[in-house]
């Protein structure tokens, strides 16, 4: 298993030569063993950005400190380029959350209530939204604005770990790990600062979703 950290800005690296050396050795070992090539963040994000729209069903288990048994929720997800996201949670939660641009709107149809808030005025909510939205949009800058990003695995099975940069966000969430296959996200694992954890399994409903693994052709001869 290969693993490397993607830095947001060109920071001063204490030992660049050793870093280069690791990469060279890694590349050599891949050539030697013939194992699938390590996936890079640009590769994953460009695969994501090829899709205009993604639809999915989700199934979520929440393990909360204040509850003595896990909570279960299910619903649908919709993403449309460039910045529209919708999460519908089935009853009893019965909630529709939409994000468009800077605006987050939560609607509770059964209570006929609606709340809207501006993401730029609510950094925590913004960070949560971008973990999914920026990934689906293939927007590396937005992703790295909020998180330290770590990618591991290969195109057929990758794992993207996001750790908040801002302390305000970090006081809520410790890490968000997205894992998937090709341009489909299959699981989102949110670990909160207070120890609460939620695991969301996602099943893509888009036809082009699971089968499309364009980087398969990039195997080394």
């Amino acid at each position: 298993m290969t693993l490397f950290r993607v830095e947001a800005r060109p920071r001063v690296c204490p030992m660049p030569t050793r870093y280069m050396l690791v990469r060279t050795v890694l590349a050599g070992s891949l050539l030697w063993t013939g194992v699938a090539q390590a996936l890079t963040l640009p590769e994953l994000l460009s695969a994501m950005s090829a899709l205009p729209e993604q639809r999915a069903e989700f199934d979520e288990q929440k393990h909360l400190a204040m509850l003595d048994k896990p909570l279960h929720a299910s619903g649908t997800l919709l993403y449309r380029r460039p910045d529209f996201l919708e999460q519908r949670t089935n009853p009893p939660a019965d909630e529709i959350m939409t994000v468009a641009g800077d605006r987050l709107t939560i609607t509770w149809p059964s209570r006929q209530e609606r709340r809207t808030l501006s993401l730029s005025a609510n950094p925590v909510a913004w960070a949560f939204v971008e973990s999914i939205r920026a990934t689906l949009a293939g927007d590396r800058a937005a992703l790295e604005r909020f998180y330290w990003v770590t990618l591991s695995g290969e195109m057929s099975h990758w794992s993207l770990t996001l750790e908040p940069r801002a302390s305000g966000v970090a006081s809520y969430v410790k890490s968000i790990t997205l894992s998937g296959k090709g341009s489909s996200i299959e699981q989102v694992d949110v670990l909160e600062a207070n120890g609460d954890r939620s695991l969301m399994d996602i099943k893509s409903l888009s036809e082009q979703g699971p089968n499309q693994t364009p980087n398969q052709t990039h195997r080394t001869p």
């Binding site: 979520e60 929440k62 909360l64 204040m66 509850l67 909570l71 279960h72 929720a73 999460q87 949670t89 009893p92 939660a93 019965d94 909630e95 959350m97 939560i106 925590v124 909510a125 949560f128 809520y172 969430v173 949110v190 909160e192 207070n194 609460d196 939620s198």
Partner: peptide, 14 residues
Amino acid sequence: LALLASSSGPMVAR
């Protein structure tokens, strides 16, 4: 409980 299960759960929980 329903709110906690929803997407706004993390915001409500605090």
